[in-house]
Nucleic acid binder design. Sequence first.
DNA 1: GCGCATTACTAATGCGCATTACCCCGCAGG
DNA 2: CCTGCGGGGTAATGCGCATTAGTAATGCGC
Lengths: 366, 366
Amino acid sequence: MEEPRKRARPGRAPAPPGRTSRPRQAEVARLAGVSQATVSLVLGAKKQGSAISAETRQKVLDAARSLGYVPDPAARRLAAARNDLLGVFSFTATFPTDVQHSYYPFLVGVEQEAAARGYDLVLFTGSSSGGAGASGPDALSRVRLADGCLFLGRHAPTEELRRLVEDGFPVVHIGRRDELEGLAWVGADYVSASHEVVDRLAALGHRRIVLVREDDEAPASTDREHGFLKGLEQAGLPAGPEAVFRTADPARTLTPQRLRRWLDEGVTAFVAEETDTGNAWRALRAATAEAGLDCPRDLSLALLGSPPPDLDGETVPAGFDIPRPQLGAAAVRLLAALVAGEEAAEPLVACPYRPGVTAGPPPTGP
Amino acid sequence: MEEPRKRARPGRAPAPPGRTSRPRQAEVARLAGVSQATVSLVLGAKKQGSAISAETRQKVLDAARSLGYVPDPAARRLAAARNDLLGVFSFTATFPTDVQHSYYPFLVGVEQEAAARGYDLVLFTGSSSGGAGASGPDALSRVRLADGCLFLGRHAPTEELRRLVEDGFPVVHIGRRDELEGLAWVGADYVSASHEVVDRLAALGHRRIVLVREDDEAPASTDREHGFLKGLEQAGLPAGPEAVFRTADPARTLTPQRLRRWLDEGVTAFVAEETDTGNAWRALRAATAEAGLDCPRDLSLALLGSPPPDLDGETVPAGFDIPRPQLGAAAVRLLAALVAGEEAAEPLVACPYRPGVTAGPPPTGP
DNA sequence: GCGCATTACTAATGCGCATTACCCCGCAGG
DNA sequence: CCTGCGGGGTAATGCGCATTAGTAATGCGC
């Protein structure tokens, strides 16, 4: 029997007037002649598909389809604590006007992998663009709508991130990020990739190789140096301090004269790290040209990363590529694992060697 | 007094064991010594900030701060009947491997405008990528998850779209789409833009202009022709059928000989439509080069759209640009209006004229 | 023919928050 | 002294769904 509780009618208005509101499970249930719970069971059909007769199941499915029923993600999440949504958060605009700095390559992989796993993506905007809920101490709180969240770029505020991590919210950072204990991340394996570049050069016959790097303590830089030196050692080549040329301003210090001196000393190959600016590589190329040297013939060059996009596209440098789409995909995989309560796996993604045209055998004879 | 309802404990587990769940309003309330409702009132503080004493308010705020309270977006949305989420759906991958076909330029504008309006974006994957909920008759149902949805590309199945539209679900299509009554869309104003190109050429002194178009019935093509012809008429130039050269295979039919004949007939300027392939423009450029003609000097060329990205970047064609970011932004604005229950406004976005270097005064004398 | 296990559902409940309806209290007016 | 009234809160309720306890119906064995 119904209680006469008509006097109380809290909550919001029943439905936006004028247009059909989205169907609820209750409506599906009514149409199918079953209870709401049954609808939930049928539609939420997990692996344990039992306890529902095929007939009833079909009735429900038909009803749901005919009404165009779609579960409300908010309600779903509230009740089940998941909604098959992965967040993507970048402190700078995800789609900056300057395509060069965009996260596009990552997103290619993120989208694919997410799609393959049945996740949709939530792009959290407000981050930079000064939108409505732009910043503030709880700027990152919105990401909690998703089951988990990917973070791109180093600009996500550490404190906010810590908060999420501590709350057990699944978070994966694209790009190594060690300063925050417990933060899951995926990153390129610069060590191995740099190592391999040395291997290749050594295999070509080079016996003295110099790394040109900028004066920077980023993990990406030190990783490369580390792999480079390890490669030298393993190849039995001189790996002392003289094998690394570290300079704050490659354009000034890496002169053609300096280059010739190295050659005179028996150096036959140079390796530059990739940085935001690409200055190391740029300087190396410039010095080579100014010195009137031919690259694959007189000396070999390799770039530990991708060439600056503005540089002559004809000359593909030897070195390795950073597999950004794969990184994105790996991030999604890791995030999915975290969401599922599993533990993190290998965070490093291999960078494939790129033969390019700037490396060859060392020149023979004097 | 508490009822002994301990036997029943439905719902999901209280919290993932082992980690602190983030605070709820209830905890804030307890700490502040008030009720949950009061917390909600204080934190949800809208314009009607009354009915709460300053003292209580402060207690609540302090408690919330000290606990680091952050509202659960899902719950908030459930209660408030909106999620501040806009969908973005593209039948093909949103971030295809081939950057050329990506919707990136649109998304730039979409993201900005969405951010400015406090919306987050949901990228519906599964569409093409063959993911979990890939296709099926209700493939589009998922978009109902958001408050409204943007559609990119012409491939979204009409029937599914109709369904959404009929249900009153706010939908905006990027790119003109007339076949579906009631479907809101935003598109570039090709008619006006093409018209203006003719104006400019006429102003430069050209008296006979020919449009080269491919054999295609897309609205984008017919719009351009329409604007072109209107421009001719208004400028008092010959706008008969001979002003339009329509061909299925520009590369074969647009020979240098054909070009010379036109010139002999007094034609001094050519206009090509932009298509997926860019064949019309390509053929025009090729014929000019093969005929040994100099572009700005011997004849003027204009392109109704953006040049194919693979074409020599040095030569900026005269014509107009398709303001994709603005289109994206306009789409968001329109969608936001629909979500708010307002009516659609002007769907056309103007295309700015691009002077370029391929148009100049007609050659003087024979 | 009764106990008991299955099967096939339904009823009840709560997730976290927003939104009333209502209540309590002190004070002014009749 | 009772009533009216407004400020300041609180209890109750529901959003839409998932989950689980409970129940009716049926089957089965002895």
